[in-house]
Nucleic acid binder design. Structure first.
Lengths: 155, 155
DNA sequence: TCATGTTTTGTTACTTTATAACGTAATGAT
DNA sequence: ATCATTACGTTATAAAGTAACAAAACATGA
């Protein structure tokens, strides 16, 4: 998944997974919601709500902001996308089958966003939190820098 | 610092530290910038730019958004405040003397924002990152939940 | 099947958050 | 005092997000 020579596969896989997941959750992946997810998965970069809006607009001029934000809300609820707070943007979740917090690696050169899924990190956060008495409900980590590919090219 | 019965001390300390730091960095903590910092330190909660704006406006009606955002940019550059991406808001940095990444604990009940400064966490992030080849420049962690005080009250 | 409640989408209007661009004033160094 | 630099004022606009209500689609039991 890290090197994606045939991005169509990522896209198709993401959509398949979304269908399956929504069915098992009794959630309705409507054509609109599916289309938005598709636009988000058009790349591995974070996509802005208004970019989705303008792309949808070329197909259907009636689309307005609430349409997009509602679809995004749905996708967020289903865990199919993550919001990238530091960019006001949205990115497809690479493993929506098991719910998790967003741990994002954001390349400042190519824009690619990857997820960092390691239990060790979660443990470390839990351990750091323990002595504080803080009861977490949501923990989001966003790391900016150069992805491995871009680091190579730049060095 | 966690229990702050006399918040005036936090405020005074923060402003003193800011003066010292700016002097040692050759940066100018102008009255305006100082006032914005003061407003941010008026509480331990994250403050929105437009709230700062409206408070400043009661003193001086000429204040416009760029004024506030420029002051905020300065304070961010100097490491005197952190931006809370998940809230579009700003909070005073509790230890600006040693530069660091934002690791924020945000209480969803009382609004208080604290910093979680443990080298172990930084190490864990570095270790998690190592095998990916990702070269980080910025890493922000924002944890929402109940602070120790509010957790007690709620349980 | 059709009446009914629920969910989804359309629509209008607006709020909140943030920045670009350019002019003026204050400051500091020589 | 002059000049360069930095900070601040001002106007306008861009970008991001939501509230509120109407219409359409769907689903489900009588």
């Amino acid at each position: 998944m890290s090197h994606c020579t045939h991005h169509d596969h990522c896209l198709a896989h993401a959509l398949d997974q979304a269908e399956t997941l929504c069915q098992s959750h009794g959630a309705r992946l409507t054509p609109l919601r599916r289309r938005v997810l598709e636009l988000i998965w058009a790349s591995h970069e974070a996509v802005k709500a208004y970019d989705i809006l303008s792309r949808l607009s070329t197909e259907d001029h009636t689309v307005k902001p609430p349409t997009v934000y509602r679809a995004l809300d749905f996708l967020l609820e289903q865990g199919l996308v993550h919001r990238v707070d530091s960019l006001n943007a949205f990115v497809g979740c690479s493993h929506p089958d098991e719910p998790h917090e967003a741990r994002l690696l954001i390349c400042t050169r190519c824009g690619r966003v990857d997820e960092l899924a390691t239990p060790e990190l979660d443990d470390a956060i839990a351990r750091a939190l323990a002595p504080t008495g803080f009861q977490p409900t949501r923990a989001r980590l966003e790391i900016h820098g150069l992805c491995a590919d871009c680091a190579k090219k730049t060095s």
